[in-house]
């Protein structure tokens, strides 16, 4: 569970990125954060993963956070297995190195994300999707109960987006992890998130069940681009997609949201 109460932050004396933000993301569920660039998504994630101290408010989490950064840089020439082993560092003293048990846990995590075959490959020679999965395995190897991901699928091709999203779904349902991720794709939130938090650049926000919050109206008000929600029925299954209509006349973004 992640409980955020009256959170607020600003850098120096700039304007508040967000204020009076109070939300609770329940255990063993998936939550998504959507919002335009510069609305404070990453700042909130950093606060949740304790690499930044908020100016206001408290964040309450049971256990430590497994943080998965974006796999943008690849200047690390460690093997994939060693990168995952780094997740064990919090359990190791200053003068100790990972042992047999830690290595077994690392391989277990690699197995979880389906990358055991690439364990001895160099991290900087992996593809973007594989690097993202390695970082995810590293968080899993730290035995976290809360998994926080910064745009885990943004830079991936469609096949790998599917791999990551399905993996998050499985981690929440079978391992009972609380998953929180940021995204620029409303489809990703609709696809797997139970709860969605919409953050605006003017510091306001709306949070609730994904279906109720991610409406055509709210998305259009937030981004200024008209959208249509399309529900598709294939055999027994139903899936929804958000289609942005860039051809239509756009409206002013950052309009007040409807809870």
């Amino acid at each position: 569970m992640i409980r955020i109460e009256n959170a607020g932050h600003r850098y120096g004396s700039q304007h508040w990125l967000f204020r009076e933000l109070s939300v609770t993301f329940p255990s063993a569920r998936i939550a998504a954060i959507l919002g335009p660039n510069g609305c404070g998504k990453t700042t909130l994630l950093r606060a949740i993963s304790r690499t930044l101290t908020l100016k206001e408010g408290i964040i309450d989490i049971d256990g430590h956070v497994g943080f998965v950064p974006q796999a943008l840089t690849a200047d690390q020439s460690y093997s994939a297995a060693d990168m995952v082993l780094m997740g064990r560092s919090r359990y190791l003293g200053r003068f100790s190195s990972p042992g047999r048990k830690d290595r077994e846990r690392a391989y277990e995590s690699l197995e979880e994300v389906g990358l055991v075959a690439l364990a001895e490959q160099r991290y900087d020679r992996l593809s973007g999707g594989q690097r993202q999965l390695v970082l995810l395995a590293r968080a899993l190897a730290s035995d976290c109960r809360v998994l926080v991901l910064d745009e885990p699928a943004s830079t991936l091709d469609m096949a790998n987006q599917g791999v990551v999203l399905r993996l998050l779904l499985r981690l929440a349902s079978s391992l009972g992890l609380t998953v929180l991720f940021t995204t620029h794709h409303p489809d990703h939130a609709i696809g797997i998130a139970d709860t969605t938090l919409l953050m605006q650049r003017n510091g306001t926000h709306v949070c609730g069940p994904t279906g109720e919050v991610l409406t055509e109206g709210n998305l259009a008000r937030m981004y200024g681009v008209p959208v249509r929600r399309v529900d598709v029925h294939v055999d027994e299954e139903t899936a929804s997609a958000i289609v942005p209509l860039h051809g239509l006349r756009s409206k002013a973004p950052d309009q007040p949201l409807v809870p």
């Binding site: 304790r50 690499t51 943080f67 919090r90 730290s142």
Partner: peptide, 12 residues
């Protein structure tokens, strides 16, 4: 060697 921010998220 991963950088300060990464080290902090890894509990170091």
């Amino acid at each position: 060697s991963l950088g300060d921010e990464e080290a902090r998220t890894l509990g170091v």
